[in-house]
Design a protein around this nucleic acid. Sequence first.
DNA 1: CTGAAAGCGCTTACAG
DNA 2: CTGAAAGCGCTTACAG
Lengths: 344, 344
Amino acid sequence: MASKVSLSDVAAAAGVSISTASRALSGAGRVSAATRAHVLATAERLQFQPDVLARSFVTGKSFIVGILAENAPGLFSMPLVIGANDFLGRQGIASLTLDGHETPQVLVEHLKRLKARRVDGLLVIGDNPDLANVAWAIDFPAPVVYAFSVPGPGKDILVLPDNQAAGAMAGEHLVRLGRRHIAHITADRAFPAVEQRWAGLLGVLERERLRPVLGGPLHGDYKRHWGAEAARRLLDSGEPMDAIFAANDEIALGAYAVLAQAGLRIPDDVAIVGYDNWRGLTSRWERLLTTIDPCLVEVGQVAAARLLEAVAGEGEHGVHRVPCTLIEGRTTLGPTFGPYEMLL
Amino acid sequence: MASKVSLSDVAAAAGVSISTASRALSGAGRVSAATRAHVLATAERLQFQPDVLARSFVTGKSFIVGILAENAPGLFSMPLVIGANDFLGRQGIASLTLDGHETPQVLVEHLKRLKARRVDGLLVIGDNPDLANVAWAIDFPAPVVYAFSVPGPGKDILVLPDNQAAGAMAGEHLVRLGRRHIAHITADRAFPAVEQRWAGLLGVLERERLRPVLGGPLHGDYKRHWGAEAARRLLDSGEPMDAIFAANDEIALGAYAVLAQAGLRIPDDVAIVGYDNWRGLTSRWERLLTTIDPCLVEVGQVAAARLLEAVAGEGEHGVHRVPCTLIEGRTTLGPTFGPYEMLL
DNA sequence: CTGAAAGCGCTTACAG
DNA sequence: CTGAAAGCGCTTACAG
């Protein structure tokens, strides 16, 4: 079982009372330095491990946090949940993960269960940074931190990838490569992430006194077909274009296919930067598509860290943005490649 | 905080002693049917929620299990961990997830921490079904279940995708499509999964009295370049071939590229089946590559289920295999497609 | 600074 | 079948 050595054993061995031993170990309460040192040494010698179960019982802290995931097996949610659990595990905190990808009633059930389990805090993980989380503004008797969702009402804590920095990062990369005619293919302008990535790119363009191709972003959705269609429109426009920043990798691949089929050389004629680093998920070798990795594992870790701060009463409210990483690939740095190489 | 209603409140309201109330609620111990019903009704009326912390303290059960992942953020591990946590969460069991992708010393630290946390059981999740888990044969004071690893010594519990069924499934699919000259491109024969997938395919071939192209599997590694090279060898051999079962999707894509470049039509001339369903991870629309999905989320769920059984003292030792799913795509069902469509 | 004591909310032998 | 009582191992006012 757990350590057979209890606090009373330590106290006895150290020749002090249980209460003194407890105070010495916990660090709180007045204890003389000498006594404390002696108790600590004794505990060390006896390999004393405080019983977490007893401590939980008496303090009312479970050392468990709840994780409410909108769609745990989702491609975005998985790394977030994994990152969160990784950080929590390192701190010795367990988690109760519940999938909320369901009806409001189920959500209510989940929250009841989490309360019954007396979790010290709650992490709500969205699967879409452009959607409000179902669980916004829930009433919960412990600190709540949100991740990968839109900011809600009230002064909550929200952790997100830094989309604006991502846009700027893509722009900087392309500008540094000498590109002057940069297009932006993206999704619905109503999405905050879409707005922010564009804002980041626009900042760089303005600083460089560059005008985006067609004067602004091409808004559509996040799918390959839209990337292809947008690329066709760009070609048809006849405007000069030497680079595309696509709001995700799917769009980037759709655009790539159309441009390459049209006889353009990538990146010689047009450089392409994507977002998500999905291929990086499945293969570490391949470095074809230059893309921005939103570092979702880290976002999960940061969210967990913020939650533990909040549990400790030190949480800072507001939005926390986690930096992204540029993954350099051949669609910006070359050498150029043909369609079968994209597979090979 | 948690329910202000305690067991003593219920007992008082029901007009019985605390011990009777406890026995009635727990179901264990002799209580008259009438008393039990009355206590239950009272508890219901008062919305009594037993305090998990107190129960844990007195029973010594933490209602937490440990999850030791070899490489939690790995592409294979993520769905396994997510699946496990999903099942556990549904049962109200929390988990302490630790990443063991490290040195043996770190592993020892992890195990110590898990013991200190008094977890009720331990789930060890490998990142490679062909590798022995670092944590095999560890000494742990609670039931242990392994997932996605090779069988270890002793009579442990191990949960795996059913690789043999996968091989048979691929074979059946190809045979049903009328293919008679089936090649198998796979990785190192020392890997159990390689052996099992081949065994499954071979079973079908023998039943159909078919001879595999080149007389047996082509052994290499799991990378695209090997898939391409093996495809070249198959073409050069001049043997008739109308289908390939690749041991993973990377091999399948490498083979596809070479065959298509050589002017063969896929699937008209050669049908291809992969394994892993990696693309299915990133896009649900695309159904180009026919492949076998190992259903890792389910494997994780089953592993968690087995662990809870073991914790309850009902665990069955041995290897548990979880069925796979065939994902039908155009590389076997057509229509044929060109390289840019693979992107689009 | 230190110790004796109460108490956290439940379970479980032990009598009755 | 039911109740009074002990006890799980710790923390924390409360005296001293």
